[in-house]
């Protein structure tokens, strides 16, 4: 079983966001980088499949050369090798990104049985790169998968909706997009990290295209401090909270 996972380097912003002076990007001077939780689950799923069935797990990203850091940390949990399509650091639009990923996938010797994506990227959340890749490669795609089994050449997938679970199947070779909660991603071990340093990361270049979904500027969504009423410290404040809960009819 040969598996490919596509992932994207994103800043790990948790608290208040700050924009660059030209308002085109998030100021990342004081931020670490990572990948989306969905994509962590995608890599973990790939590692588990290769552990169970043998084969290889390849990682693919389009991003700045610094994205090697995200590839190495995912190689450390068990991926076989990685491919980095290097950009000048500008984010590419979904069509341009998908086209470059497709070219890189077609250039691989391995014909991947399964390609796994995150359900949406953490930062731009376009909900589409995987579907564009599926069309270009003529493969079936199941999105938003929360539980998956591979049996007899078929990916058997579940998607969670408000009313319960929906069951889909796709014959391999296929594409699935996965959601946080699919599994619990493991942490890299020390030997895993050592091995990852020696694994191959192929660097590639691609021609940028004129973006058709053209980012002009970013703005912070308005949010105002609700001005919490501090009821007090520790257990002493509990009676005041009980009064509040009574007032709002919580019991």
């Amino acid at each position: 079983m040969d598996v490919l996972v596509c992932l994207k380097r994103v800043p790990l912003a948790g608290g208040t966001l700050i924009l660059t002076p030209d308002s085109r990007d998030i100021e990342t001077k004081h931020l670490g980088f990572g990948i989306s939780p969905h994509e962590e689950n995608a890599v973990e799923a790939g590692v588990q499949l290769v552990e169970q069935m043998g084969g290889t797990l390849t990682l693919l990203t389009l991003g700045p050369s610094d994205a090697e850091e995200q590839l190495r940390s995912q190689l450390a949990i068990g991926a076989t090798r990685a491919v980095l399509i290097e950009t000048d650091g500008q984010e590419w639009d979904p069509q341009g990104t998908a086209a470059a990923l497709v070219d890189a996938i077609n250039a691989e010797e391995t014909k991947f049985d399964l390609i796994i994506f995150g359900a949406e990227s953490a930062d731009s959340a376009g909900y589409q790169i995987h579907i564009r890749v599926a069309h270009a490669l003529n493969r079936p795609i199941v999105t938003n998968v929360k539980s998956m089994k591979i049996e007899n050449g078929v990916a058997s997938c579940e998607r969670v909706v408000t009313t319960g679970r929906e069951h889909y199947e796709a014959p391999l070779p296929a594409i699935v997009t996965v959601r946080d909660g699919l599994n619990i991603p493991r942490y890299p071990s020390v030997p895993g990290r050592m091995q990852a340093r020696k694994k191959i990361v192929d660097m590639k270049k691609a021609e940028p295209r004129v973006p058709k979904l053209e980012k002009v500027t970013l703005a912070l969504a308005p949010s105002k401090d609700k001005g919490a009423e501090i009821l007090g410290k520790g257990a002493e404040a509990v009676p005041a909270l009980v009064d509040v809960l009574k007032q709002i009819g919580a019991f």
């Binding site: 501090i230 007090g232 520790g234 257990a235 509990v238």
Partner: peptide, 29 residues
């Protein structure tokens, strides 16, 4: 940061506050 979104807050250890809250609500009920 969550305080900016809160209506009410207790500054303290949840391991003390929550059991105290549970028993106070029980009593009030």
């Amino acid at each position: 940061p969550i305080l900016r979104y809160a209506d009410y807050a207790i500054i303290g250890d949840l391991h003390q506050v929550i059991p105290a809250l549970t028993s106070a609500i029980r009593q009030a009920k």
